[in-house]
Simulated assay, not measured.
Amino acid sequence: MIAIPAIDIIDNQIVRLFQGDYQQQTNYSLKPLEYAREIAANGLDYLHLVDLSGAKVGQIVHRELLAEIVSKTTLKVDFGGGVKTNKDVKKLLQLGANQVVIGSLCVKEPETVVSWIKEFGINQFILALDTDGTNLKINGWQDEAGITLEANMKYFEQFDELTILTTDIRKDGTGNGPSTNLYKELIQKFPNQRWIASGGVESLSDLEELREAGCYGCVIGKALLDGKITLKELKDFNDASI
Results as ranks from 00 to 15, higher is better:
I2Y: 03
I7P: 02
I9K: 09
I9C: 03
V15I: 09
R16N: 13
Q19G: 07
Q25V: 07
T26Q: 15
Y28L: 12
A40R: 00
L66S: 04
E68Y: 01
S71K: 11
T74V: 10
K90D: 05
G96A: 15
A97Q: 04
V113F: 07
S115P: 05
F120N: 08
Q124G: 08
D130W: 01
D130Q: 08
T131W: 01
G133N: 01
W141S: 12
W141N: 07
D143G: 12
A145L: 09
N152I: 13
E157F: 12
F159T: 12
G173W: 04
G173H: 00
G175Y: 06
G177R: 02
P178G: 06
P178A: 05
S179R: 08
T180H: 04
Y183M: 08
K184D: 05
F190A: 06
S205T: 04
D206S: 00
E208D: 15
E209A: 08
E212S: 11
G214H: 13
C215P: 03
Y216W: 09
Y216F: 13
G217Q: 02
V219W: 06
V219F: 03
I220R: 09
A223V: 06
L225E: 07
G227A: 00
K228Q: 12
K232H: 06
K232Q: 12
E233L: 08
A240Q: 15
